[in-house]
């Protein structure tokens, strides 16, 4: 869980001064399983990226490089949608262990 902000850290009147601030909030600890990326099986179809509800697939120059585990909730849509190379998936889900 992210720390709650103190009132002195907030803008006057409680204004939210810019958009997209939710990136500062970490939802990664909701996860019960995590995606593992196997680049050798990746055909860069970007299906994982377009269907991720949490914008947690990291792209670099338009190519998948990994996952933002601060936001990933471990739903597994990426692994399910992944066509992989020769039917071997480039994303698999692994249970989180403490």
């Amino acid at each position: 869980m992210s720390e709650l902000k103190k009132y002195k850290e907030l803008a006057l009147g409680g204004n939210i001064e810019k958009g997209g601030t939710a990136v500062d909030f970490k939802t990664g600890d909701w996860r019960s399983s995590r995606p593992i990326y196997h680049p050798e099986n990746c055909i860069q179809c970007l299906f994982c990226w377009v269907y991720c509800p949490d914008s947690a697939v990291i792209l670099k120059d338009g190519k998948v490089t990994g996952f933002n585990l601060d936001h990933c909730k471990g739903c597994g849509i990426c692994a399910h949608e992944c066509p992989g190379k020769k039917k071997v998936k480039a994303i698999t889900m692994e249970e989180e262990v403490k």
């Binding site: 996860r31 509800p53 914008s55 338009g62 601060d70």
Partner: peptide, 23 residues
């Protein structure tokens, strides 16, 4: 196409409180 969409960048960010797998 997907490459062009990806180049635009997200305007709806992660870190929201929807269920895992929310549509």
């Amino acid at each position: 196409n997907l490459k062009e969409l990806a180049a635009r960048g997200d305007k709806f960010t992660g870190g929201h409180r929807a269920c895992a797998g929310c549509g």
